[in-house]
Amino acid sequence: MDKSPLSVTLSGVTLQNPVVPASGCFGFGYGMAEFYDIDILGSISFKGTTRDARFGNPLPRVAECSAGLINSVGLQNPGIDAVIAEELPKMREVFHQPIIANISGFSIDEYVECCSKIDGEDQVAIIELNVSCPNVHGGGMSFGTCCESVSEVVKEVKRVITKPLYVKLTPNVTDIVAIGRSAVEAGADGLCLINTMLGMRIDLKRRQPVIANRMGGFSGPAVFPVAVRMVNQVAHACGVPVIGCGGVSTAADVIEMMMAGATAVEVGAANLINPYACKEIVEGLPAEMHRLGIDNLTDIIGIV
């Protein structure tokens, strides 16, 4: 059988196309299946999941920005056991492609427990480790901002899982390449970047932060050039497949991200202003490839 010109492979996991809704922007997929047949997507990175159920942060959790938004949801999720018992069965009814499981934690033990549980789920093909959470045993510093803590969490998680492990890197660091290298040396099979950039908006009339939690993660088209630059640096330095993420809104953005070095591409904020964003990107890819003289998407990965 001829390979589809859109298909890509991440650590042995073949996706029918590189378009993946990013964690936190698509729930567990079934809500979005009200709008279109989500089986056209390459994969879905599901809502960041922790050991225990979390309500998350107080409102407001969202703020308008030029060409983007700041969110501080605070990892609202029903907890790993409810995700496996209730969310994944609903997701499986409407989505039959490989699933990327986004796992968060506030301690090494929590990451290990969640990853070990989700690893046993058949349709979960890749585990994506969100290392942007504060380490409650490490003075509250985010796991992903220090080579040692990234290395430690990756090593411990790798001991208990069989599926490929992708580490989702935070851009809020001085040298993202160094963090990426640490993750890979510790056993990460791939990397995903970038998570949101820390940002803040102030309500001038109230003289207060717009977001109840003061600051939050900035995303949207405004961060796209930063993401392309970081993907380019990390993909060429780290020698593992990269999932590019950050401000992707169009089929042309997907191609730019892939030329920078991404094998697959996550779409986040764009879903929030247009529920059909990923559908339009998937459907727009063939025409964009034709326009740019691209026969197979795999031909352009990291050519820049």
């Binding site: 936190g24 922007c25 729930g27 409102l59 407001p60 969110n71 529920p275």
Partner: peptide
């Protein structure tokens, strides 16, 4: 204040 308005982002 809402992010998406259709249940995807849980900002509200």
């Amino acid at each position: 204040r809402m992010g998406c308005g259709f249940g995807a982002c849980v900002c509200c």
